[in-house]
Nucleic acid binder design. Structure first.
Lengths: 338, 338
DNA sequence: CTCAAGTATGACATCGATGTCTATACGTCC
DNA sequence: GGACGTATAGACATCGATGTCATACTTGAG
């Protein structure tokens, strides 16, 4: 009786060739549809391969062909956030059209982990690396960028490094949110923002503040809340804001997590404040939530496209694509001040 | 002036060794912390590596070490569905603890595509393959399963193949949803289900029907709707159901997409029917939607765990883990019949 | 009938790392 | 001082495929 734990090794091309009674190279030619293989030989080789359950060893092929894989890496924040998963989906679809596969890894918003994941991807010789960065400083990638591994930054601009990027029109979107609420008659508008050190948040805050300045409104200033980083914290913050006297009559939340928190914090109120949230989300229509929307799948798709162009040999200065935003009015942002 | 399109090749270990004035093998030893390297030699090698910007070629290493990568593949339906992304996230976290990386690809619910993605993964010599299958027949995987590539099926049982699986207690969850609505006094309960050919849907339908039978209720029968496959279709179906006379007083939707559609279809109604949805979702609390919840991250985690055990050499009969469900009452499922 | 061109095949080197085996230098112990 | 153990380092084969070049055998044109 054979030992149970003998690992069955996959047959190699050499074995296929032996069974077919041809040389290694001939077997390779036959299976790769190369010219100059006699029909009968080709059939014999294919039969042998089928019989043995042969499967090409992509690792060996890649080593021989140029030590570079058909993989593209994505390091993102947290796949459970629908924003990231929509982006990842856009990337994956675009890459698949070019026969590339996507490897993903979460950095859990941890800069150290991000770095080690980037390392792991580079060791695997990914063809390109897409990053939704958490780290503030990307200078350590500079050497890599010059060695033929293209980088594309998503959602957040590269810092200390010239690289392609696909960004959202954060300032513009936030400005229009501010203007939208001003137009509905609001003055005491609360701003609930995530970590201000992150560039997109910074831009959203600035855009909103710009709209207020331009309108000569400063009644929002007591209601500025930044560094609100999760749903719970946002919920609590909104409750606290609404308990103030005078309370704000409107709220602008600068990402989908904070919007979720705000909706929880406002739940059950008979006189809810107006609300506009950055990022569209599922069921916003049912909830009647006005949002600053943008095409997340397109963001991923464009990033994948930039990466593919670099892979295909495009060289030239770093490019930045900006995804536009638009307000989708669903009711919550059009409520007048009490 | 050098040509612009010269691809810069990464330095190899041979070059590092040459620069450090040692042999290839010594350089390898130094960088891999192997014993018996003089401190001064080690330093010289590391300096040379830094200077050249050397990075290990993981492909070559893998080929030498056993032609198997540190990658685990996941073929899933659609990453933009929060169900899949939560599962993927659970998998990824678990794998990372063992130094494994996750490659993902969407099959877009297409059986042919699923097969070709599985092929691509196997050629890359993934250590294990996790599948949330769309294909009905998985027999074609049987050969692979016997050749050392462990498979784990998620959410849907393997067909024509003995393999590990992690499933949800679909029948139990659906039964409890039915009982929950019966307990609230409903009799005319609509069932809105996705494609009945998919095993999980089949089980959910059966569970619900079982609850009705057990209670001696047959008033639900005119309101059975299956093969409702997307949000729009669900919305339309619910509208049509509510236009019937007599209309159902309660609705059970068998997945998150359908629940979304139902919520849209019920929007604006002053006398909404009771609603219970299978799968929990973000903001269900804000919307007050009663759901059959289950731990999606745990589903992914358990699947990754099973895969890891197989990778580590565990052999034995196929195992099936069932993730339990629980009703979370939030109001919509407790509304009494009109 | 001869020679050039074309077809089918095989031998061998190669991609970039690691495993095995061997060789040298240097102490140490008796 | 000779034998021996140990630390260090290198030569070489190897993983599984593909690229290059060489070779034997057909054809077809002149």
């Amino acid at each position: 009786m054979p030992a149970d734990d003998v690992t069955v090794r996959r047959p190699t091309l050499t074995q296929v060739a032996a069974l077919a009674g041809v040389s290694l190279k001939t077997a390779s030619r036959a299976l790769n549809q190369e010219p100059n293989v006699a029909p009968s030989t080709g059939r014999r080789v294919r039969d042998a391969a089928d019989l043995l359950g042969y499967r090409l060893n992509g690792i060996a092929r890649e080593l021989r062909r140029g030590a570079t894989s058909a993989l593209v890496g994505l390091v993102s924040g947290d796949l459970t956030n629908p924003f990231y998963s929509a982006v990842a989906s856009g990337i994956e679809r675009e890459l698949r059209q070019h026969g590339l596969l996507l490897i993903t890894a979460n950095n859990d918003e941890d800069a150290m982990l991000e770095r080690s994941l980037v390392d792991a991807f580079l060791e695997r010789r990914v063809r390109a690396l897409l990053v939704i960065p958490s780290a503030d400083d990307h200078e350590y990638l500079a050497i890599e960028g010059n060695r033929g591994v293209p980088f594309v930054f998503l959602d957040r601009p590269p810092d200390g490094l010239a690289a392609d990027a696909v960004l959202i029109d954060n300032a513009g979107g936030a400005r229009s949110a501010g203007e939208h609420l001003l137009a509905a008659g609001h003055r005491r508008i609360a701003l609930v923002a995530d970590l201000a050190r992150m560039a997109p948040q910074r831009a959203r805050i600035d855009g909103f503040v710009g709209a207020m300045r331009a309108a000569g409104n400063d009644a929002w200033e007591p209601y500025l809340r930044t560094d609100v980083h999760d749903v719970r914290h946002a919920e609590r913050t909104v409750r606290e804001l609404l308990a103030l006297d005078p309370a704000p009559t409107a709220i602008f939340t600068t990402n989908n997590r904070l919007t979720t928190g705000a909706l929880r914090g406002m739940r059950g109120r008979t006189d809810p404040p107006a609300l506009v949230g950055f990022d569209d989300f599922d069921l916003a229509d049912v909830l009647g939530t006005t949002v600053v929307a943008h095409d997340m799948t397109a963001l991923g798709r464009e990033a994948a496209r930039l990466a593919y162009e670099r892979i295909s040999g495009h060289s030239g200065p770093a490019r930045t694509i900006v995804i536009s935003t638009s307000i989708i009015a669903r009711g919550s942002g059009e409520r007048p001040p009490r």
